[in-house]
Amino acid sequence: MSVLHAGGFQVGLVTAAGFVAWLLIGLPAGVLVQRLPLRGTQVAMDLVRAAAIGSVPLAAAFGTLSLVHLVVVALLVSLASVVFDVGNSTFLPTVVPREQLTARNSLTSGTHAVNQLAGPSIGGALVQLLGAATALVTDAVSYLLSAALLRTLPRAAAADRPAPGQTPSVAAQIGEGWRYVTRHPVVGPCVAMATSVNFVCGALMTLTPVFLVRTLGAPAGVVGVLMATEGIGSLLGAALTPRLSSRLGSARALLLAPVVGAALALLMPMATPGAGLLLFAVGNAGFAAGVVVLSIVTRTHRQSTVPAELLPRVMATVRFVSWGAIPIGALLAGSAASLWGARTALWAACALTAVAPLVLLCSRVRGLRRLDELDAPHAPAA
């Protein structure tokens, strides 16, 4: 965005475009994942993302890069990522025993955290060396590598197809997943909590670069390091989740994580140039750790308790609702930054982190030790 000298609202617009696809196709994505060949679909989505991102440095080289181009690229990447991510979230429980899901989900989140940790730092260095647009070439190459690796995996077994005329409509299948999520005594409140958290995450995606660059005057390399602290927090959260779930119980770990994360998030808007940047680093890492714990715990619960035939649609519904809050948070944060300044907008976003623990405290999760305690006697009919 520095190439186009974009302000807070423009940054928010591009950030929102990167997640708005969950609002556009989030619900039918679960049905698509069940009906299409999984490996071929994921390879195709990687190729789409590589082509879209690769067009940015190409346009920059010819001097035609514009804000509209960036928004379109973000939207294309987002649409492809929706289908890809729903497929990934339903694959793990088919190959991992239930008792290992928490550990495997933690490992997956830990791997993502390593990418968060190394990516911004390397990205900041590449931006300084090559320029912002040219640095995106490495991102495009990563999707090509992902597609090549996916091609080495065995094809998934073909799903049993219903007899002609007996295939439920897309709307009926979407409705089945929606009713399960909204009526479930654990999944429902967890989705509400995740939605509030993701609203804040969307706001932080917009506000963090604007706050660090425009308000604190940090250079690109330092911004990369500070944003990488999110990866440190995510890695810590992923490492702690199995132990917290085992010792405290999954429900109590879920209650603890957003409380700690919300308290530490308030350090971010207190940051000042120089040594005061450490406050941002600690706050960013602490909030990320809390987000990862609740993500692993709730995802493991869904994978281990939702009926297999409903899981893709339940996952898609959860993502549609909770991730749909990200573009809304991004746009509102961008507008707030333009009106009141980045620091004030960041204070407001961090204050909203208190909503997540309040949602759980007002639900039946409050009295549980483990999230699956309500599933056997109370799981709702789809």
Rank of each mutant, 00 (worst) to 15 (best):
M1W: 15
L4T: 09
G7Y: 05
Q10W: 10
V11E: 01
T15N: 13
V20Q: 01
A21P: 00
W22G: 01
L23P: 01
I25A: 00
I25D: 02
Q42M: 15
S55L: 11
V56L: 09
A60E: 02
A61D: 13
F62S: 13
S66C: 13
V71I: 12
V73C: 01
V77H: 06
S78N: 06
L79I: 09
A80Q: 00
A80L: 02
F84T: 01
V86P: 02
G87I: 03
G87P: 05
V95L: 14
P97W: 02
E99V: 07
Q100E: 14
N105D: 03
T111A: 15
Q116F: 15
S121P: 12
A125N: 11
A132S: 15
S142F: 07
L144A: 13
L150K: 05
T152S: 15
T152V: 15
L153G: 09
A159E: 14
R161Q: 14
A163R: 14
T167I: 11
S169P: 11
V170G: 04
A171P: 09
A171Q: 14
V181G: 00
T182D: 08
V187Q: 04
G188P: 04
A192I: 12
A194W: 09
S196G: 14
F199W: 12
T206H: 01
P209S: 07
P219F: 07
V222Q: 14
V223W: 02
A228L: 08
A228M: 10
G231P: 09
G233E: 03
L235F: 15
L235H: 09
A239Q: 12
A239E: 07
T241H: 04
T241K: 02
P242C: 03
P242N: 02
L244N: 06
L244C: 11
R247Y: 11
S250F: 00
S250V: 00
S250D: 00
A251E: 01
A253N: 04
L254Q: 13
P258S: 09
L266R: 08
M268N: 04
A275I: 13
L277M: 13
G286K: 05
V293T: 07
T298L: 14
Q303Y: 03
A316T: 05
T317A: 10
S322R: 00
S322H: 02
G324R: 01
I328H: 06
L331K: 02
L332P: 04
L332M: 10
L332S: 04
A333C: 06
A337F: 05
A345H: 04
A345V: 06
L352N: 07
L358D: 00
R364M: 07
R364S: 13
R366S: 07
E373M: 06
L374M: 10
A376P: 07
P380Q: 11
A381P: 05
A382F: 10
